[in-house]
C-alpha cells in the first residue's frame, strides 16, 4: 500500500507491504541507516527514533502505522557541520565506543533535554533504561547527557547576554 511519511522534514511516498517494520522502511527503503537495527524484540533500543514527538522502538512499529505522521532520526540532529549538543556531549565525554547503541541513545537524550533541560543522573538513567550499551557501562553516557545539558545552558545564557 502507498504511504507518505515525513522523515526529518522531507515527505516520502512509497509503496510498502503492511508487514514492513518502520526500522526497515528507514534503513532499506529510504537508505537512512543512522537508525540501527538490533534485537528485533523491543528490548535493546538501538532502533529508537521519534514518531511525531515521541521516541519509539521502530522495530515494533509498522511503517504503515507511520503513514501521515512525522519521523525524526539521528540524521536530523546535526545542522551542517555543527553537531547537536547531545552529539557534542557524547563526543566530548566519550559516550560511545563501538557506537551501535548511540543513535538510539542520542534520540532519547534529545527528547529528555527538550522536556527537562537539567536532568539529574537518576533521571538520565531512567530515561535510557530501555536501551542497552555493552561498551560504556553507561557511566560515560550519563556524563555525556549531563555535558549536553551544560552546553545548552551555556548557549542559552550567551544568547540572553
Amino acid at each position: 500500500m502507498e504511504i507518505t511519511v515525513t522523515v526529518n522534514g522531507t515527505g516520502y511516498t512509497r509503496d510498502v507491504e503492511p508487514r514492513l517494520l518502520l526500522v526497515h522502511f528507514l534503513r532499506d527503503t529510504l537508505g537512512l541507516t543512522g537508525t540501527h537495527w538490533g534485537c528485533d524484540t523491543s528490548n535493546c533500543g538501538v532502533c529508537v527514533a521519534w514518531l511525531d514527538e515521541t521516541p519509539v522502538k521502530t522495530c515494533t512499529v509498522l511503517a504503515v502505522m507511520a503513514d501521515g505522521h512525522r519521523v525524526r532520526t539521528v540524521e536530523d540532529l546535526a545542522t551542517g557541520d555543527t553537531l547537536d549538543p547531545v552529539q557534542q556531549g557524547f563526543s566530548d565525554r566519550h559516550g560511545l565506543q563501538c557506537g551501535f547503541c548511540t543513535p538510539g541513545m542520542l534520540m532519547t537524550a534529545r527528547r529528555l533535554l527538550d522536556d527537562d533541560p537539567d536532568p539529574s543522573e537518576a533521571t538520565i538513567r531512567e530515561a535510557i533504561s530501555g536501551q542497552i550499551c555493552r561498551c560504556t557501562g553507561y557511566e560515560n553516557i550519563v556524563r555525556s547527557v549531563r555535558a549536553a545539558a551544560e552546553i545548552e545552558r551555556t548557549a542559552d545564557q550567551e544568547a540572553r547576554a
Binding site: S42, G45, V48, L51, T54, P55, V56, K57, T60, V61, T108, E126, A127, S129, G130, Q131
Partner: peptide, 9 residues
Amino acid sequence: IADPVVRNR
C-alpha cells in the same frame, strides 16, 4: 512496566 520508550507506545 517495561521501559520508558516502550511505555511511550
